[in-house]
Design a protein around this nucleic acid. Structure first.
Length: 357
DNA sequence: TATGCGTGGGG
DNA sequence: TCCCCAAGCAT
């Protein structure tokens, strides 16, 4: 890469970042653990969504040792609503691995970081550069977009060949003296100006260095992949009550939300058949029947390419509760307990329709 | 290598 | 309303 270009790009980007960077909680910390937590939460998740979760998480688990000691369910309960729950499990496994293998301190080099559960190429580069000032590159969705535009590189965002090119460009560009700021600046630029649609090229600090800007079609980079087909599913769920408490179950194997609590439910081909399927599920696996079931307003929820409509019935639970078949655990939770349980938004919406939360 | 995994905001 | 997709990783 041309040395003058490299120098110009770094300076313009870093100057812009110093002036325009957002004040984010993890940017106030120099604790590698805090930066680790933020990077895991930020995977595929927008900044505004992460902030309250980040604050609560660090308050409850302020150190690697505290996180390593915790029960997995406590960690999941704090993560509930943030999505991609595997991240929480892997983060905690990572904390345990650091406690065992590294004496409780995060290693500072990307290869060692990469060995830890939940840390892939992006996160290893982020922690190494931001927390330890190592000159490691990183590539996320923002960086692919920014650099594919600056260098007018063809290909879909997740295409392996383009990814490889972008990693090489990021490695050439990363500023050796302020790698953390440089990497964050690249992502900040992608998040705020160099957006997917309607980029603000006129305010961009590197517009004079951008090939896509010169070509007049910045939005053409990166190319968008063929659209995913959405699938529609119908689901029946039971809000089984015992006084003020509601029944939650933990399935042994679940398509989604493995290891989290949820309402007893069945998937079915069409909406009208749902109540019957649900009754059989309650009877055979949980030993219960719903007395005088009341239909609740249907709720909808999207999980990746799935669009799921839930038809729920609430009623007093009759019978002696057991957990059998697909269910590993089943128990009634009071209203107060519901607030602190690892229950995803998928079923929180149903409980909201039942006016229980 | 392709796919599955959550959720909320914006166009 | 509906679709897109955002500081990715594991399998």
């Amino acid at each position: 890469m041309d040395a003058t270009f490299q120098k110009n790009f770094r300076k313009k980007l870093l100057d812009w970042y110093q002036k325009h960077k957002r004040d984010l909680p993890w940017r106030r910390s120099r604790d590698p653990y805090a930066i680790w937590v933020s990077e895991i939460m930020l995977q595929q998740t927008q900044v505004a969504t992460v902030i309250p979760y980040y604050e609560r998480f660090l308050k409850k688990f302020p150190t690697i040792a505290a996180l390593a000691r915790a029960e997995e369910e406590e960690v999941l309960a704090l993560w509930a609503g943030l999505g991609y729950y595997r991240r929480a499990k892997l983060l905690q496994r990572g904390a345990r691995a650091v406690a065992e293998r590294h004496g409780g301190r995060l290693p500072d080099d990307p290869e060692a970081l990469r060995e830890l559960p939940g840390i892939g190429p992006y996160t290893a580069g982020a922690i190494a550069s931001i927390a330890f000032r190592r000159p490691s590159p990183l590539v996320d969705g923002n960086v692919v977009r920014v650099l594919s535009r600056v260098f007018a590189r063809k290909g879909h965002a997740k295409d392996a060949r383009l990814q490889k090119e972008i990693w090489a460009l990021a490695a050439d560009l990363v500023d050796p003296t302020q790698p953390g700021d440089f990497n964050q600046a690249l992502m900040e630029l992608g998040a705020t100006l160099c957006r997917v649609a309607l980029p603000s090229c006129e305010r961009c600090p590197v517009q004079g260095l951008c090939a896509a800007r010169r070509g007049g079609e910045p939005e053409a980079y990166p190319e968008s992949p063929p659209p995913q087909k959405t699938l529609r599913l119908q689901r029946a769920a039971a809000v089984a009550l015992r006084g003020e408490s509601v029944l939650l179950v933990k399935p042994r194997a679940a398509r989604w939300f493995q290891g989290l609590w949820g309402l007893p439910h069945e998937y079915c081909a069409e909406a009208p058949a749902t109540e019957a399927a649900l009754g059989e599920c309650l009877r055979s696996h949980l030993g219960l029947a719903l007395l005088r079931p009341q239909a609740l307003p249907a709720t909808t929820h999207a999980i990746t390419q799935h669009r799921i409509t839930t038809w729920a019935w609430s009623g007093e639970a009759q019978g002696r509760l057991k957990a059998a078949g697909p269910y590993e655990e089943a128990r009634f939770f009071t209203k107060k307990e519901l607030a602190g349980v690892a229950l995803p938004n998928f079923d929180r919406k149903v409980l909201a329709a039942a006016k229980l939360i």
